[in-house]
Design a protein around this nucleic acid. Structure first.
Lengths: 244, 244
DNA sequence: CGGAATGTTGATATGCCTCAACTAAAGTGG
DNA sequence: CCACTTTAGTTGAGGCATATCAACATTCCG
């Protein structure tokens, strides 16, 4: 019987790539080591040299930079099916850290086993490559979001992305999804002071676009939230249209 | 005789990856079509579906997003040896545009020929994959730079990166390098108003850290510029130490 | 030489950060 | 289980950095 982690991985890669039966079989033969993370626990630190790659099975992880002034800059958030450190397959040292947001379950796969698959099943390699390219596309969008958009638009955009990606991966429940972030963390992701985060959240709530409480995002009016966030999901490069 | 473009490509990939003689031979057998771009000319637009990948032979190209409000957000700048649209090998549609900054010479290589190399020379595929991963690392650093750092640090960091990368590719001349950007473009890269760009440049010049005039960056005091920009080149993932 | 784009300077406005105080919730130990 | 401590969230006031506006200088380019 195949490890359920293999299903999660195969399912995720099929969101954007084509895999045949043998490709999936190769994924099923990988070794998956379980690891549980406490909320806020660091999984990888800047400078580490991992020899395994992680697959998120449940919960949310965050990638971040430490700033010289002691601050923290969140770079992206990853959910079930994501490979937050796939880059470590080809970049020796981590240039950023990865931590758990809320409780997290990971599956760890040895680099050597993964790269060995690439020799016989190039399509698997291309799918994971594509996964890292989508990652990069999300980083680009974040540059634009954090540099070029006003605070309210910026925050709406982040929540659009979080909900859309959760929804596309089947993790939304009705008009809600889990995002166990504090306002402090939102500020460190969006480059805003906490006070501003708080007031911007209130503004979005008063406008009946969305609510965010206790780590639960509730979308009240998707269409207007998308408009308020200048959100266009093309950059996520999903194979199928995702209806919200 | 091999196309000089092949040398440029092989040389670039060797900045971070190991290639053997056969790998280089494979690169030499690629078809390289020349294309010249005028200053400011768009090479690819958002939504395009390229079937060739570009190699920068000379000059500088910029990748950018168009904003809904008509503005422009520059995402990164690429110089000789860079592959600004390598992602198009595996992502159908461009989620951003690429334009020339100053006059540019490109070599275009058919996607099909490149992916055919991957079958026989996986090391070439991994090297180009690594190239796209370094790209992503630079995007991450840009998120941090534009979201988490004050204007003066932010600008110093950008110039550190531009100089360091030019220097690593052998494109610096003494303590200067070419960066044919206008102050308007700097503002659109850093998320600053033009007036602020102008005054921040003056501040860096008065402090005798650097000068930027007529598209020429002159480093007056590298050590202090690095300190002023919180610059640490680890994120560029170069194989060798680069002494400035 | 004239017109457009870019760069420079000064003055003003404002969005957001900082500071501060307080409330609410969550986690801890007796 | 409840006092206690800590962390997260909320509200108000004030100041500063940076955007915006406006005028002018300079360079570029036809």
């Amino acid at each position: 019987m195949a490890d359920p982690a293999a299903d999660i991985l195969a399912h995720k890669l099929k969101e954007h790539s084509r895999l045949n039966g043998e490709d999936v079989t190769a994924l099923e033969r990988l070794t998956y080591h379980r690891r549980l993370l406490q909320p806020n626990e660091d999984f990888i630190r800047q400078g580490d040299k991992p020899d395994v790659a992680a697959l998120v099975l449940s919960g949310m992880v965050a990638r971040y930079h430490l700033l010289n002034n002691g601050g923290r800059q969140y770079l992206s958030f990853n959910i079930k099916g994501d490979l937050p450190d796939a880059q470590s397959l080809f970049l020796d040292r981590m240039d950023h850290a990865v931590c758990a947001v809320g409780a997290v379950e990971l599956a760890l796969m040895p680099h050597k086993e993964i790269t060995r698959i690439f020799e016989r099943r190039p399509a698997v390699g291309f799918a994971i490559w594509r996964e890292t390219l989508i990652d990069a596309a999300i980083f680009r969008e974040t540059i634009t979001n954090n540099s070029g958009r006003a605070t309210r638009i910026r925050m709406a955009h982040l929540f659009c992305e979080l909900f859309y990606r959760a929804h596309a991966s089947g993790l939304s429940e009705g008009n809600t999804c889990s995002a166990p972030l504090s306002q402090i963390q939102l500020g460190e992701a969006l480059g805003m002071a906490i006070v501003t985060v708080n007031r911007t959240l209130q503004s979005l709530r008063r406008a009946r676009l969305m609510e965010f409480r206790h780590g639960i995002l509730t979308v009240k009016d998707w269409k207007r939230l998308v408009a308020a966030g200048d959100f266009n999901p093309d950059y996520l490069h999903l194979k199928r249209e995702v209806k919200v």
